[in-house]
Design a protein around this nucleic acid. Sequence first.
DNA 1: GATGAAACAGCCGAGCT
DNA 2: AGCTCGGCTGTTTCATC
Lengths: 147, 147
Amino acid sequence: MDKIDKKLLRLLQENARYSLKQLSEKVYLSSPAVAARIEKLEEEGIITGYHADISLDKMGYHITAFINLEMTPKQKASFIPFIAEVPNVIECNTVSGNYSMLMKVSFPSTSDLDLFIGQLQKFGHTETQIVFSVPVPHRGIVMKEEA
Amino acid sequence: MDKIDKKLLRLLQENARYSLKQLSEKVYLSSPAVAARIEKLEEEGIITGYHADISLDKMGYHITAFINLEMTPKQKASFIPFIAEVPNVIECNTVSGNYSMLMKVSFPSTSDLDLFIGQLQKFGHTETQIVFSVPVPHRGIVMKEEA
DNA sequence: GATGAAACAGCCGAGCT
DNA sequence: AGCTCGGCTGTTTCATC
């Protein structure tokens, strides 16, 4: 993991569809060398995937919210398989404080969100925060240049 | 936006580095047709970008947390430019309830996180939840097949 | 949207530092 | 050992139908 690897990570975070050619020009190496480095980063588990970002709003998902759910450990066991199958769940984390889960969800409307929150009641107490705006959009960790 | 567009979105969410050739085989279309559809999706703002996912843990960021910050509207104005420049902030949302912001952050250790929370005190009251595990990793909205 | 040709990028080997 | 350079293969792009 040297300076060049970090720069490749930064570039691929910025645009995962850069070609090897484009990358090789930006880091002043040949494309086979870049290909080998990227393959190594993937094998080491440093790069875990490449994903297209899709506008939730344009797809009709106008309401995004964070839901905090407080449960007992027993309920958690049945909750996780359930939540993994709900397509509206963008992420779900086990967090500190009262055995709770914090999840990010997205729905077409507030009534759909309300319906979902209703389904969660059997697992435990919920607290919901609706997202109004996103001053800092989801991004990866910014790599230090170390130039 | 037809069935094929949705399938392309699903495929690019899954792996943004699929070549046009691979995509064209999966949707049973020619590669120029696929290229034109993707270009249209990008222009319409439905696809907003392509990003490599990097393991925070492998990069030395072992602690991830959600921080809720309660502020007055006035403080918010000075807070947003500040927070946008902190590389450890993964996302930051304005949410309902007491003019608060909910942000996701990542640090090498709990003491780094503590230092950061200290910096936030001048903006308002904070509540922090540390992430223990991620049962459902961050993902896009799952496209309905509509086969 | 499909087809075919031309430009381009990626891949594998050999040789170099 | 890792990189660069060559040529061969596969991919993308453009013009035409």
